[in-house]
C-alpha cells in the first residue's frame, strides 16, 4: 500500500481548521500559543460564528494573533483588551467578542481592566495565556513568575537573575482565583495544552465559554498554563516537564467556577488554602 492509497477522504480523521490562515508562525518551537490559536479557530469554525466573532489581541507575543485566525480583529494597548472588548461588545451585542492576553498584559499592567470587565459581567470570553514570563521583551519576571517548589528558589528570569525573591518581588499572583470570586463571571477555569488529553479539555472549555458569551451569561475566563521554551531556556520537552513539576502545584488545572455546577467553588476554596 502506498501513501496515496491511505490519504483519502474516507480515511480522514483530522484536518486543519479552515479559519487558520497560511501565515508562517512567528512563535518559537514548543510555544503553547500555536495550539491555543488552533483550538480557537476550530471552535469558532465548528460553531459557525466566523461572521460575528471579533478578537482582541494584546501586547506581547500574541500581538500578532490577528495574522493567524481569519476573523475581524482589534489590536489593543498593553493590558487594555478587556476595555476594548467591552466597547465592542456593548455597541454590538449581537457579536461574540473575545480577548487573548498574556500574563504581563492581563495580570500586571491590565489588572484594573480585567477585574472590572469581569465584575461587570461583560458577555465576553477571556483567554489568558500564563507562561510565567514576559516572552516578547526577552524573558523578564511576570506577576505570575514562580516560587518553584523543586528548587526552593524562585524562577530565574532576565530581571530575577538570582531567582524570584519574595522580599523584593512579592508573591506570584493567582489572578484566576481572584476572578473566580467575582459574581459577574459565568465560568472560570484553568487548563493546559501539553498533552492530547489536555488539549481536548481546553478545547471543551473554550467552546463552553463561547456558548456562554452567546447566551449572555457573563464573563467566561480560560487560563491556559503554558510553556515558554525560549524564555525558560529549556527544550520544548523539558519545558513541559518543568511546567508539570513547578507550575501545576501552584496553578492547579481544573474548573474554578462554573455557574452551572456546584463543587467548583469548593475547588477554589481548597486551592486558596494551598496558597
Amino acid at each position: 500500500m502506498e501513501v496515496k492509497d491511505i490519504i483519502k477522504d474516507e480515511n480522514l480523521v483530522y484536518s486543519r481548521p479552515k479559519l487558520l490562515t497560511d501565515k508562517i508562525t512567528h512563535y518559537c518551537p514548543g510555544c503553547s500559543h500555536g495550539v491555543v490559536h488552533k483550538l480557537l479557530a476550530e471552535v469558532i469554525e465548528e460553531m459557525g460564528i466566523q461572521e460575528k466573532t471579533i478578537g482582541v489581541s494584546p501586547v506581547g507575543c500574541a500581538v500578532f494573533a490577528y495574522n493567524y485566525i481569519d476573523i475581524d480583529w482589534h489590536e489593543a494597548a498593553h493590558g487594555r483588551a478587556p476595555a476594548v472588548a467591552t466597547g465592542i461588545s456593548r455597541v454590538n451585542p449581537d457579536k461574540v467578542v473575545f480577548t487573548y492576553q498574556g500574563d504581563g498584559d492581563l495580570a500586571s499592567i491590565g489588572t484594573a481592566e480585567i477585574m472590572h470587565a469581569a465584575n461587570r459581567g461583560e458577555n465576553i470570553v477571556v483567554v489568558f495565556i500564563n507562561n510565567a514570563i514576559y516572552g516578547m521583551t526577552g524573558g523578564q519576571m511576570a506577576p505570575t513568575t514562580q516560587m518553584a517548589p523543586t528548587t526552593l528558589l524562585g524562577q530565574v528570569t532576565a530581571t530575577t537573575p538570582c531567582g524570584r525573591d519574595l522580599a523584593r518581588n512579592g508573591y506570584p499572583l493567582k489572578i484566576t482565583e481572584l476572578i473566580g470570586q467575582l459574581p459577574g463571571t459565568a465560568y472560570v477555569t484553568r487548563q493546559s495544552v501539553h498533552t492530547p488529553a489536555a488539549v481536548r479539555k481546553c478545547r471543551k472549555a473554550l467552546k463552553k465559554s463561547f456558548e456562554n458569551a452567546i447566551a449572555k451569561k457573563g464573563t467566561s475566563f480560560v487560563e491556559v498554563v503554558s510553556t515558554c521554551s525560549s524564555g525558560w531556556r529549556l527544550s520544548p520537552v523539558d519545558a513541559n516537564k518543568w511546567m508539570e513539576e513547578n507550575m501545576f502545584p501552584f496553578y492547579p488545572v481544573g474548573d474554578i467556577k462554573d455557574a452551572e455546577k456546584a463543587g467548583a467553588e469548593l475547588f477554589m476554596q481548597q486551592n486558596l488554602k494551598n496558597c
Binding site: H74, R90, N92
Partner: peptide, 26 residues
C-alpha cells in the same frame, strides 16, 4: 445609545477605541 461608567479614564478611552473600531459614533 449606550452610556457606560468605566472604572477609569484609561478604560473609558479604550472602550471608545474598541467601539470606534466597529464603525460606531462614540
Amino acid at each position: 445609545m449606550v452610556v457606560l461608567q468605566a472604572e477609569s479614564e484609561v478604560a473609558s478611552i479604550n472602550m471608545v477605541y474598541g467601539a470606534a473600531g466597529t464603525g460606531k459614533k462614540v
